[in-house]
């Protein structure tokens, strides 16, 4: 995942922002503890969102403590505590997906970078194995999604729907792991599916100009090498987010509700608008 799941900071209450940071710091600490301090660099906003959603869904946040930040010992940080395994899952998700992304990048990048990636790959491979031992289902789902993605992008008639399906399917299944009953499962699946679809497509929209130059696959570039209309891209993105929001409304959430609402109603659309605005100018300049 790629760091698009952000908050709209200006619209958060101060205490909400502190809670958000506390979850982020808590997750960072867990990654250091479970894997290595190096993996902390792979931590993204997306995984913080995942951890927070889990904590909210299971109502498992049991308070906050003030401790020193491990990165900068002079700074004091607040950490959110949890009774459930939310951090562990989010950390595993982060490490496993970082491993697969690295592996994917090796084949896409140039000589010098490729050598560098190859050198760090064994470390990630080790951490991934460690994570997979405890969270086999997450590891299975992610590796399955990588295969599906490869298949989809090498399919000549790859539509937008088909290209987005692997990521969407992955997130749908990851979220529905938490379900307590069938109703939960369906709601969480739909929410994950549409959110995952949005993430994949926003990433594609973000990279579309670059992909056109380098000739990489992108669902918004047609077979003649033409970029889709920006209005069309915005409509596709809006629709995924609208459907994700409908499903989100059916999940019972109380803890961190203000933050989660802020994200889906303001944070994500703001990220999206920033990217489509950028596209408008870039496409115009071409």
């Amino acid at each position: 995942m790629f760091g698009y799941l952000q908050v709209q900071k200006s619209e958060l209450l101060v205490r909400e922002f502190e809670a958000y940071k506390a979850v982020y710091c808590g997750l960072c600490k867990q990654m250091g503890k479970d894997y290595s301090f190096l993996t902390r660099f792979s931590l993204s906003y997306d995984c913080a969102y995942y951890a927070m959603l889990l904590m909210s869904f299971h109502r498992s946040c049991s308070g906050f403590i003030d401790r020193r930040c491990t990165f900068n010992p002079l700074k004091k940080c607040r950490f959110a505590l949890t009774e459930s395994d939310s951090y562990g899952k989010a950390a595993a998700f982060s490490v496993i997906s970082a491993y697969f992304k690295l592996k994917d990048d090796i084949s896409d990048s140039r000589l010098f970078k490729r050598i560098m990636y190859r050198m760090i790959l064994p470390f990630f491979s080790h951490w991934r194995k460690k994570a997979a031992k405890k969270y086999a289902d997450i590891d299975n789902l992610i590796s399955q999604m990588m295969d599906l993605q490869y298949e989809a992008e090498h399919n000549l008639e790859c539509s937008v729907d088909r290209a987005a399906h692997p990521t969407a399917f992955l997130l749908g299944n990851i979220f529905s792991l938490e379900a307590k009953d069938e109703t939960d499962r369906r709601v969480l699946y739909e929410f994950g599916y549409q959110l995952g679809r949005w993430i994949y497509l926003i990433d594609a929209a973000d990279d579309v100009v670059q992909d056109k130059k380098s000739g990489n696959y992108n669902p918004f570039i047609d077979s003649n090498g033409k970029i889709a209309k920006v209005d069309y891209i915005a409509a596709v993105l809006n629709q995924s987010l609208a459907r994700a929001y409908d499903a989100y409304n059916l999940i019972d959430l109380t803890d961190f509700k203000g933050i989660l609402d802020n994200m889906i109603l303001k944070g994500f659309p703001t990220v999206q608008n920033k990217i489509t605005d950028k596209l408008y100018t870039e496409v115009k300049n071409e």
Binding site: A235, L241, L265, P269
Partner: peptide, 8 residues
């Protein structure tokens, strides 16, 4: 409607 809907 969904396609035209941009929250926030």
């Amino acid at each position: 409607n969904q396609r035209a809907y941009n929250y926030g």
